[in-house]
């Protein structure tokens, strides 16, 4: 067997092929979608940017296509232009420079994480209060839901301006907006999670004459863990949106939101898209980290098979 394998390692069939395996998981479908998107994107870039191409002499089709994909301020930048811009601002620019996207991302990330920490904590406390005091559910839940119907874009400038007037600027106002956006999914998820134990388990605790706190810590909290991570994933993404929105109204000097705003002032579409990609990558990374933590915790609890 080992000799055979050494002689002809490639000719021996070993279950499904690489392609089949890729499509059995998520790799195949994801790659396919990305490829389709790229084709559509390039086609759209050519089509949208063509009117912007200026030339003294008539261009051949190939020259026109090349030109549409190499504009300095295209209507729709081509993916490779965004990647080049990302490489330039992430890898080739020192982190200390104001042009470094890493620095801007860090500014946004710091207020995202601060807002997330406070928002998640607030969301948790509200959920615990609501689960323990039934009358709070009727009185608080209405306001909690209402708070999320207010468009954040309208509230953000108010918060920034009011806090700015009393001398609070920088990270804190942005973190407040983040917290405002991200406490809700945590409250909603945890109210559901903490009340998720079925009747049987609640009866079981009753037969032990368990105190409310014993029931809380030994039954409700562990039962709510899957709900917690699901809501944290939503919350951390919402928190990033909050931080970016918080950077828009004042024309902040730093942060991904500031880059978006500056880019749109000066028609720097490539810069806008690069900031957008950085924000998406940031969100994906944070959600991924929460997901990894979830996997770890659930495995530790023995509930994930």
């Amino acid at each position: 067997m080992t000799i055979d394998a050494a002689i002809a390692p490639a000719s021996r069939p070993r279950g499904p092929g690489l392609l089949a395996r890729a499509f059995a998981g998520t790799t195949g479908p994801v790659v396919t979608i990305v490829a389709v998107l790229m084709v559509v994107w390039y086609a759209a870039a050519v089509w949208l940017n063509a009117p912007l191409v200026q030339s003294e002499t008539p261009l051949s089709t190939a020259e026109l296509v090349d030109a549409t994909l190499a504009l300095e301020r295209p209507l729709l930048p081509a993916p490779h232009q965004i990647l080049i811009e990302l490489k330039k601002t992430v890898l080739d620019t020192p982190v200390t420079s104001k042009r470094s996207l890493v620095q801007h991302a860090w500014v946004t990330l710091s207020s995202t994480l601060t807002g997330f920490a406070f928002g998640a904590l607030l969301g948790l406390l509200l959920a615990v209060a609501i689960v323990h005091v039934r009358s709070l559910e009727k009185s608080l839940m209405f306001w909690i839901v209402s708070s999320q119907t207010i468009p954040i874009l309208a509230v953000a400038p108010i918060i920034i301006v009011v806090l700015g007037a009393i001398g609070v600027t920088g990270l804190v106002p942005k973190a407040i907006i983040s917290a405002y956006l991200c406490f809700f999914p945590v409250t909603a998820g945890m109210v559901k999670g903490l009340t998720s134990p079925d009747r049987l388990h609640v009866d079981l605790m009753r037969t032990y004459d368990a105190s409310p706190s014993a029931t809380f810590w030994k039954l409700r909290v562990p039962a709510s863990v899957p709900f917690l991570f699901t809501s944290l994933k939503v919350a951390i993404a919402a928190s990033l949106v909050g931080a970016i929105v918080g950077e828009l109204p004042t024309g902040a000097q730093a942060g991904l939101g500031a880059r978006l705003l500056a880019g749109s002032y000066y028609g720097q579409t490539i810069q806008i898209w690069a900031a957008l990609f950085a924000a998406a990558a940031l969100a994906a990374t944070m959600v991924g980290l929460v997901g990894a933590l979830e996997g770890f915790v659930l495995r530790q609890m023995g509930t994930r098979r």
Binding site: L200, D203, L204, T207, Y208, D209, K218, P222, G302, T303
Partner: peptide, 18 residues
């Protein structure tokens, strides 16, 4: 019940999965 005089076995095992 408060003196924990009985043990109760439910129709389902009702074990805590974690």
């Amino acid at each position: 019940r408060t003196q924990r005089l009985y043990g109760y076995v439910f129709q389902a095992p009702a074990l805590l999965p974690w």
